[in-house]
């Protein structure tokens, strides 16, 4: 029964990783951008929500409703103002720009909030759990995160396959110049993709911050987990990212079940094994890119 519990907890943890990773997957799928600031953006969102909740009587729910649109707008502006320019120079410069952004965010957060650990206060929700039986209880927060990950990925898939802008996003991913020849402003399309990616990473950052403490330095670890989820699932495939997140979560919890020190290592080993034996990922890209 302990093993069943471990597997279920692993899958639920995978939901958080998938939520973190889908924005990374989207940006890579549409623009071939590897956003190295992705993890730090999630942390930035958490601090922003922390500030909103300390400065106002608003609760976590309202903080989410405020931070998400702010981050979407931030993503749109950043893409138009900064990332697009680097994109027209070379893929390498995009990597450098997002790396620089990561450094800037970490240090700005350190300056403003110090290195102390914080947590988003969600009251009793943080410990509330669904008690299935004597050996298994599922945290409502973990269930909520997992549910949000599924909702976000399904919504993104529907957006990409059904909506006019989503279709053009896939078209621009196939052939940016041909997309401009049917009337798409690729800068706008790209900025919308980045806005969506930023909103999802903000959501992931907030869900993370509700269940565990955070400080300005944890971004890169979040990025690595997200990156691993994307690669395990298959670059550019959103369903793959969901699956990759779950595989990573499972590997970590199963490893930790054997020996608590194996938590991180087992996840990395699975990642390396996928790279070595199935480099195209579990679900190779077909839909998006």
């Amino acid at each position: 029964m302990t093993w069943v519990n471990t597997i279920v907890q692993g899958i639920l943890l995978g939901g958080l990783y998938a939520l973190f990773a889908c924005g990374l997957s989207l940006m890579f799928g549409v623009m071939r951008i590897v956003n190295l600031a992705h993890g730090d953006l999630g942390v930035l969102a958490a601090f922003l929500a922390y500030s909103v909740m300390s400065a106002t009587p608003l609760g976590a729910f309202w903080a989410v409703l405020i931070v998400l649109p702010v981050f979407a707008a931030f993503g749109y502006a950043l893409q138009r103002g900064l990332i697009q320019r680097s994109l027209s120079i070379s893929p390498l410069s995009t990597l450098l720009v997002t790396f620089g952004l990561s450094v800037v965010i970490q240090n700005a957060l350190l300056e403003k909030y110090s290195a102390d650990s914080r947590a988003l206060n969600v009251g009793s929700l943080v410990t509330a759990a669904l008690r299935v039986n004597a050996s298994m209880s599922l945290s409502y927060l973990a269930l909520l995160t997992f549910g949000l990950a599924i909702v976000v990925i399904v919504a993104l898939q529907l957006f990409l396959s059904r909506s006019r802008t989503g279709r053009m996003m896939r078209a621009a991913s196939d052939d940016p110049e041909a997309a401009t020849l049917v009337g798409a402003d690729s800068r706008h399309i790209y900025a919308v993709a980045t806005a969506i990616a930023f909103a999802t990473v903000a959501l992931a950052g907030l869900m993370f911050a509700m269940r565990s403490s955070f400080d300005p330095s944890i971004g890169p670890t979040r990025l690595i987990f997200a990156f691993e989820a994307v690669v395990i699932g298959g670059l550019g495939s959103l369903w793959g990212t969901l699956l990759g997140g779950m595989v990573l979560g499972l590997a970590q919890t199963l490893g930790a079940q054997l020996d608590p020190t194996l938590l991180l290592l087992s996840g990395h080993v699975i990642f390396l094994a996928v790279l070595a034996f199935r480099p195209q990922g579990l679900i190779p890209q077909r839909k998006l890119a």
Partner: peptide
């Protein structure tokens, strides 16, 4: 220069 991943109708 069609969009290869898109269907005929989507193109």
């Amino acid at each position: 220069r069609l969009f290869p991943a898109l269907t005929v109708a989507e193109n």
